[in-house]
Amino acid sequence: MSKLNVDIKPVRDIISKFGDGQDSNLIAILQQSQDAYGYLPKTALKEISRLTDIPLTRIFGVVTFYSQFALIPRGKHAIKVCSGTACHVKGADDVKQKMKDILNVGEGETTPDYQFTLETVACIGTCFLAPVMMIDERYFGKLTADKASDIVQKYSEKTQE
């Protein structure tokens, strides 16, 4: 994962899709850019600023405001452990701790092999199966520390194949 040579073509393609009204599409542009790169490289942000005429300071302000955006490379999979109220009263802390232990990272950190980024999120609307987590866009419910660990294990096996 080279950080020096960022290909700016994806950003250009994304921006050209939006046409007019790019100002109000800034968040969507950033979201799609992050999908393309896995994070928001500085070069990409500069290119967004250049093409949309939105000052880089404003772009930076938006990027740092929303928790979804990352300025450093992230893992291939995002693990979001819920720390919402329902999960909290049903033992989400155990799940979170287990994730930290097996991945050997802290909250918001990425494993050295760039497979996983560990995040917490306050509720993912699956409180009825608390405690829960999401990996990318998949929900997993009624977790225990061990169940969560098994699920992550399966993901690591899959990515190693």
Binding site: T85, A86, H88, A122, C123, G125, C127
Partner: peptide, 11 residues
């Protein structure tokens, strides 16, 4: 936006 932790009606 349903941000309240513990809410899933809107979802």
């Amino acid at each position: 936006d349903e941000g309240d932790p513990g809410a899933f009606m809107d979802r």
